[in-house]
Computed example of a mutant assay.
Amino acid sequence: MRPSPSPTPSPSRLRRHAATLVLVVACLGTVATSPPRSPPATATIGSTLRLTQDTPRSTRGFVIRVSARDSSEDVRGEVNGLLTARWMPAGPTTSPAPTLRARLARVDDTQETGRTFTLDTPGASQEWYAGSAYFDTCTLKKGCELEVELDFEAQGELGEGTVEVDWKVNAEAYTFTDDAPKGFTVEIQER
C-alpha cells in the first residue's frame, strides 16, 4: 500500500485566504484613514397642526444656521423631518381612509416629491419619516445656512374630520475635527 500524500491546500483555497487577507487589510486602512468627526451640535423644533377639508395643505419653512466663535472649520450636517399623524373623523365613516403626503426638502429641490401614507385606523397615531436635506460642506467663517420646507397635504374625503399632525424637524452638524469649535451651535428658525 502506498502512503497517502500529505494534504496541501488547493489553489482555490489559497486564493480565498489571500482575498480575505487583502479585504481585512483594506478595511483596516480605511478605518485608520477616516477623517476625524467632532461631537455633533443639534437642534429640534416642532408643533402640531390640523388639516381639514377646507385647509388640506400646510407648508412650513425653516432656516438652519450653524455657527461657532472664530472658527474656519468645515461643517457637514443633515436635517430630518419626523411626524406622528392621526385621522380624527367627526363620526362613524364609510369613506375610504385619507392619505397624508409629507415632504421635507431643501427649498431649491424640485425633484423630491415626498412620501404618501395611508391613515387607515381612525384615532390611531402613526409615525413616519418625512425626508431629509443635507448641508453641503461649508466653512464656518463664511456662514453655514440651509433653507428647507416641510410640506403636508391631506388627500381624500375628510368630511368634518381632521388629520392631526405632530411634526418635528431635527438638525445635526459636525466638523472634521476631534473636538467641536468653541460656541459650536445649530439653530432652527421658522420663516
Rank of each mutant, 00 (worst) to 15 (best):
G91K: 02
T52H: 02
R65Y: 06
A41Q: 01
R76A: 13
P40L: 02
D109P: 03
T52E: 03
A19D: 12
V25K: 10
S95G: 05
N80D: 09
P36N: 13
V24E: 13
F117W: 04
A32E: 12
G114D: 05
T110M: 08
S71R: 03
R103W: 08
P92Q: 07
A41V: 01
A105P: 01
P96Y: 05
T20D: 11
T121S: 03
A43E: 12
E112C: 04
A43N: 10
V66L: 03
G29F: 07
D70P: 09
P98H: 04
A32Q: 15
R37I: 04
A105I: 04
G61R: 13
P35G: 14
V107Q: 06
G91F: 01
R103P: 05
R50W: 04
P35N: 01
L49V: 05
F117S: 00
P56T: 05
M88P: 01
A26W: 10
R76N: 07
T33S: 13
T84I: 15
V63L: 09
V25W: 08
G29Q: 08
T48E: 07
A105S: 13
L49R: 05
V107R: 11
A26Q: 05
S67A: 07
T33Y: 10
D54T: 13
C27L: 10
A26L: 05
G29T: 12
T30K: 11
L28H: 15
R50P: 02
V22H: 11
R69A: 15
T55N: 15
T93R: 12
T20M: 12
R101T: 14
T94E: 14
G77D: 00
L23D: 05
